[in-house]
């Protein structure tokens, strides 16, 4: 493991902590897309099927359990917590997230390394993660007021993807020289989806203004 990978994982973890902090401390999930959060539950469940069949490291095992657990906790808060669920912008969270599942699954059936349940579902989780942020970005675009914690959550999530790209570059040139096309391509697509958000996030930060995305 290199420093970029570790920094990427920590940024990912930090983004989740920021989101849970927002929900728990302010008892509000306004500006957060439940659809994106539900997609992340599916992403983690399908990717970490090997949790009990293959041991990589204690670090990997703990992180996998944390990602699965926190994603369930967030969805639980948004759906069932009696105060939090009332702050959910249901009418603005309009992205048809189910339409992302089938194309990602078909693509995973067509493009994978090995035709096994584990590998196809692992590939599916990579394709799905690449596009899972879309409902969240659409919701942000429709929100007049994006609060700081929501903006920071998406910023750290994007930073995590950027650091993973650096990790792959480092790994390829300085560690194992192995091409991993499926994670690379889906990771690059995912990172590119954040470009627009990053542009406006940095702009608002420079101008000391509240973040607002153009419609």
């Amino acid at each position: 493991m290199n420093l970029f990978r570790l920094a990427g994982d920590m940024t990912h973890l930090f983004s989740i902590i920021v989101l849970l902090l927002k929900i728990h401390a302010t008892k509000s999930c306004s500006g957060i897309s439940l659809k994106t959060q539900e997609l992340y539950v599916i992403v983690f469940l399908t990717r970490y099927l090997d949790l009990f069949t293959r041991f990589v490291s204690l670090y990997n095992t703990v992180m996998k359990i944390v990602f699965i657990g926190t994603s369930f906790a967030i969805v639980w808060y948004m759906r069932y917590h009696k105060v939090v669920k009332q702050t959910y912008n249901k009418d603005e969270d309009t992205f048809k997230h189910y339409f992302l599942l089938l194309p990602c699954f078909v693509l995973a059936l067509l493009l994978h390394n090995e035709f096994t349940t584990m590998d196809v579902l692992w590939t599916f989780s990579l394709y799905l993660e690449a596009v899972a942020i879309l409902p969240q970005l659409v919701l942000l675009q429709q929100s007049r007021n994006i609060d700081n914690l929501t903006g920071n959550y998406v910023f750290f999530l994007g930073a995590y993807r950027g650091l993973y790209v650096l990790n792959w570059i480092y790994r390829y040139f300085l560690q194992d020289h192995r091409a991993r096309w499926i994670p690379w391509i889906s990771g690059l697509v995912q990172t590119a989806l954040y470009a627009d958000f990053f542009y406006y996030y940095i702009l608002s930060w420079k101008k000391h203004e509240k973040l607002k995305l153009p419609a």
Binding site: R5, D9, H12, D50, R54, V56, N60, M63, K64, F67, N113, E114, D119, W122, Y164, N167, D176, R178, R180, P183
Partner: peptide
């Protein structure tokens, strides 16, 4: 054939 470290990232 999948090497073990093909799936080692999170």
């Amino acid at each position: 054939y999948l090497d073990d470290d093909d799936h080692d990232e999170l």
